[in-house]
């Protein structure tokens, strides 16, 4: 068993994937709590589709995908968060998301064709991590963790009650902007591993699972982070030894955790 694990760590690409994956899983879980609570669960899905569109255009133009994706997805995050507040917010997100996917597919088929790169963007790949991705992932993770430790009370107050926060002088706009930017960058990086089609799971599953068991916000935050990282490592493990696709294995693991937590909560709080 230990030999197997040591074997995984002997591949540089696997080490990179584990570092990046664990960090973005952590970020997604932390940022996801507020998105789920504020009914913005589909934001991750929408952003990843936009990111896919941007990546397809970048590949066609011969630009490094991250350079184009990050700014475009940050803009999209602002737009979607704003649209999401309106009455037909969910419809707006779905429209933006499918349009971006469509543009991406059109550009990809007309230029490079639906090749492995595009396939990886759709369903994720552990092989895709470069050194650059590692640096970005570390930077984002550090930002998210600092944000959470320094501004924990304010973030809690805002996600519970925006109007009240504004009234007592919390700079709601600033924190929401920061949240949008960090979510956007997390999605862009995580999409390389998880793929555009499976990514919303890394935002939604950990908080939803943690909320099944925890009644305190602080515990939800901690458990959500743990679930997210555990599920990712489990996914890597399954992928190595049973030849499963990583992203799908991660989602399946999260699904099982969610079911287990649901059952425990049913028994405990009957």
């Amino acid at each position: 068993m230990m030999d197997y694990i040591a074997e995984i760590f002997s591949y540089p690409f696997a080490v990179r994937a584990i570092i990046v994956g664990s960090l973005v899983s952590l970020c997604a879980a932390l940022l996801g709590i507020n998105l789920v609570l504020k009914r913005f669960s589909m934001l991750g899905d929408g952003l990843s589709h936009v990111s896919f569109g941007a990546a397809a255009i970048a590949l066609a133009a011969g630009v490094a995908p991250l350079k184009l994706s990050i700014p475009i997805v940050i803009i999209a995050a602002f737009l979607l968060l704003r649209l999401g507040r309106k009455a037909n917010g969910d419809a707006a997100i779905a429209m933006v998301s499918s349009s971006a996917l469509a543009i991406g597919i059109i550009v990809a088929t007309m230029t490079t064709g639906m090749n492995t790169d595009i396939n990886n963007y759709m369903f994720g790949s552990v092989l895709a991590m470069s050194k650059g991705d590692v640096y970005i992932a570390v930077a984002v993770a550090v930002c998210v963790i600092i944000l959470f430790i320094l501004f924990y009370e304010k973030l809690f107050c805002i996600s519970f009650d925006e109007e009240f926060s504004r009234a007592i002088g919390v700079k709601v706009g600033f924190y929401n902007t920061l949240n949008a930017i960090l979510t956007a960058v997390t999605i862009v990086v995580a999409m390389r591993i998880m793929g555009a089609l499976l990514i919303s799971s890394i935002i939604i599953f950990p908080p939803m699972s943690a909320m099944k068991l925890c009644k305190k916000y602080r515990l939800v935050v901690i458990l959500s982070a743990c679930v997210s990282i555990f599920a990712f490592l489990m996914g890597i493990f399954l992928s190595f030894f049973y030849d499963m696709p990583v992203a799908a294995a991660v989602v399946a693991t999260k699904h099982i955790i969610f079911i287990v937590f649901s059952i425990i909560s049913k028994i405990k709080y009957k």
């Binding site: 609570l37 504020k38 009914r39 430790i149 320094l150 501004f151 924990y152 009370e153 304010k154 809690f156 107050c157 996600s159 519970f160 009650d161 926060s165 007592i168 002088g169 919390v170 909320m211 925890c214 009644k215 305190k216 916000y217 602080r218 939800v220």
Partner: peptide
């Protein structure tokens, strides 16, 4: 609407009244 199923203890919510005064962690 959000508050209806928000996972937080009474204490956490009451203390958040001070959140604008909490400073750098």
């Amino acid at each position: 609407e959000t508050q209806r199923d928000f996972p937080a203890s009474v204490n956490e919510i009451i203390m958040s009244g001070f959140s604008s005064k909490s400073f750098f962690g």
